[in-house]
Computed example of a mutant assay.
Amino acid sequence: MTTIDLFVDDSDIDVAIDDRDEGERRALELADRIRMVAAHDPGHAQRLVDELIVQLDRALGGTFREYLDGPARDVADRALTGAGSESSAVISPAENS
């Protein structure tokens, strides 16, 4: 007897429908990569997240907090107020590899 597998796994299809979908896909990939780093080195992952927050705030002219609320805003506030501290220092490409 022959069986036909009708289950379709579309997780490997990499076709963006529009720019928004592409942006969401890339954001999910970034979050997944940060989770993998956090599993091996939580401190390094936190520094990466802090630097990402600082750079997003710069790119948005200092208004990044306005897009957040609750715990996410608290995390951003901590990263942005600590921007001059050693824990939020810019990560060099050598450290990032």
Rank of each mutant, 00 (worst) to 15 (best):
D77W: 06
D19F: 03
Q55F: 02
E22H: 06
T63R: 14
E24M: 11
E86F: 04
P71E: 14
L68I: 10
D9Y: 10
V75D: 09
E29I: 13
T63W: 03
A31G: 08
I34N: 08
I53W: 02
R35V: 14
F7I: 15
T63L: 08
E86D: 09
E66F: 14
A89K: 07
L68T: 08
A16I: 00
A27M: 09
D69L: 14
D18A: 05
G61D: 13
E22Y: 08
D14C: 01
R25W: 11
D5N: 15
A83E: 09
F7H: 14
E24V: 12
Y67C: 08
A59P: 12
S92T: 06
P71D: 14
D41P: 00
D69P: 08
Q46S: 00
R78V: 04
D19S: 06
G43V: 06
R35K: 15
H44C: 02
A39R: 09
D41Y: 00
R33D: 13
L6A: 14
S87M: 00
S87K: 03
V15M: 04
E24K: 12
L60F: 06
V49I: 07
Q46I: 00
S88G: 06
A76I: 04
R47K: 11
T2M: 15
M36S: 15
Q46M: 01
D41A: 01
G82Y: 02
L68H: 11
D77A: 10
A16D: 07
A83R: 10
E95R: 11
A39F: 05
G82T: 02
A16H: 01
R47S: 07
V49R: 06
F7E: 15
V37E: 10
D50R: 06
F64C: 12
D21K: 01
L30M: 13
A59E: 15
P42Y: 05
R73K: 13
P42F: 05
S92L: 05
S92C: 00
A27F: 06
D10V: 07
A16E: 03
P71S: 13
M36C: 11
I17D: 04
L6N: 12
I91A: 08
